[in-house]
Design a protein around this nucleic acid. Sequence first.
DNA 1: GTCGATTTCTACACCTGGTATACATTTACA
DNA 2: TGTAAATGTATACCAGGTGTAGAAATCGAC
Lengths: 217, 217
Amino acid sequence: MDAVTEQPGLRERKKRRTHAAISEAAIALFLERGFDQVSVAQVAEAAEVSKRTLFAYFPAKEDLVVHRFADHETESARVVRARPERMTPLAALREHFLDGLRRRDPFSGLNDRPDIRALFRMILETPALIVRLERFRSTGERTLAEALRETADTPDLTARLAAAQIVAVHWTLALDNATRLASGETADERYAGAVDDAEHAFALLENGLRRLPRHGS
Amino acid sequence: MDAVTEQPGLRERKKRRTHAAISEAAIALFLERGFDQVSVAQVAEAAEVSKRTLFAYFPAKEDLVVHRFADHETESARVVRARPERMTPLAALREHFLDGLRRRDPFSGLNDRPDIRALFRMILETPALIVRLERFRSTGERTLAEALRETADTPDLTARLAAAQIVAVHWTLALDNATRLASGETADERYAGAVDDAEHAFALLENGLRRLPRHGS
DNA sequence: GTCGATTTCTACACCTGGTATACATTTACA
DNA sequence: TGTAAATGTATACCAGGTGTAGAAATCGAC
């Protein structure tokens, strides 16, 4: 029915162009004046589209910005499923994250291309956008739990707990990197520290919090 | 200035009554017809208060429901700070959670009083309310990280990572219990399983995910 | 090409959550 | 009892989001 790989057809191509045009117009305006200072009506006008049409392409204002992250939702689950034999899920995820740092994947929070840096900064200072990203996090967690359950022969609760911990750590690392870059650090400056932190974090996941000290210094 | 412990004063008392009255009217309506099917105007009318006044007491519609959970935001942090000497933070939190199960604290998701069960059910099926609860989770995570950093002599990143993991696990457990009760199970039926699950979860936190299997069964 | 069916876009009106303003009422306290 | 400060109210307004009905474009078949 929906041949995406084939000739997409004029209709499909036009749809994608409109989609991209609206999103680009929106992000340009948001970066210029701030997310909350631009109304969807103004975005629609700038994109030369009616408000109704805008909402046909994007279910909510926030999606004008965060739709780019939708692909990454299921990334962890895919990594776990595609891992080589005899590799533990955690090892696969650590490899993948370290690779993301190396490749400066926005997923890892370590991309400082000016446009991406500006985008991150805007997201970080706009609560509504953070909330929307948290939703991606939830579904990422759910799909990861499923992947763990199915490929690691793990009881349901264990899979859900492990997924929750992994995603929480992942999110903490990425947010930390993004925050540092947003406030001026370059990706190259941050890289070594980011690697250290990631390794520390995955070690903590692997070995547990057993070593958290008792009271006192 | 603000003597809460003393005679509260007429103004203060009246304010609290109004606060409670609005919230009760709101929850009654929401339980009857569903959160999204009731407008704030209707709540205001039912509480015999103007819409403007309602928003003076509750910053957003969702807060009419979730303000009851606000106290628990910093609970984990308090538990960690108040733990006895020579007790690890994790042990204190485990004790506290198990105690919450015993006491059927709504915090643990294991309270089946009809009104609370109905409330939980409504929250679980209303995305906007879950989102609002997630915000509490975030600030709970931040305050817990601070408590760990200050009382366990832990580097900042470690504290944040540990807090993220702990809160994620806590949330998973509580949500699991609440979901089961919402779909009919009684608290007494669930209790033993809830304890087992909690102990398993805290053991996982303590010992790490090292034992997550490689591929295959 | 051209015709009809289907999809997509648009204009417009409407609902709801939330806020600003300006005025009335109540409380606290001398 | 009178007055300043705090609270409550009416009204109008803004922005996000949806329903509806019709106009326009696209597609496939001939």
